[in-house]
């Protein structure tokens, strides 16, 4: 049985990601790619609209990833986490590149009773 805290793969919580690029720049194997843009968001109390980063794409090439976990450790917003998911073999090299959908599906559900 694989423990839930196992380092099977790295998962992404896109709603927590601020597109700060820290993970991308610190990755020793350059296996993370991130694309984002800014949008102006008006808030009722604010005098000026707020600029927020919108995440457009986030890819990890698990062919290159050395599972060092630096990205997980350095993410200031806990948008990256270890997941016990390990069934990620592919029949092409490109199949090891996972995007936002696959990375969020792997997000660990360590405490099922607390809901989503």
């Amino acid at each position: 049985m694989i423990p839930t805290e196992a380092h099977g793969t790295i998962a992404l919580q896109p709603s927590a990601c601020t597109s700060c690029m820290i993970c991308v720049r610190e990755c020793p194997t350059w296996c993370i790619e991130l694309e984002s843009h800014t949008e102006q968001v008006s808030e009722p109390d604010a005098r000026r609209p707020k600029t927020v980063n919108i995440l457009d794409a986030f890819r990890i090439d698990f062919g290159l990833c050395m599972y060092c976990g630096i990205c997980v450790d350095l993410c200031p917003f806990d948008a990256l986490a270890w997941s016990p998911e390990h069934d990620l073999a592919a029949t092409t090299a490109g199949g090891l590149v996972l995007g936002i959908d696959e990375l969020s599906r792997a997000w660990p559900n360590r405490n099922p009773t607390s809901g989503s």
Binding site: Y67, L88, A89, A90
Partner: peptide, 17 residues
Amino acid sequence: MSVYIPGCPPRPEALIA
């Protein structure tokens, strides 16, 4: 290559998968 298994190293279960 027929199959690429990711990991550094991959778990034994990943080999089976």
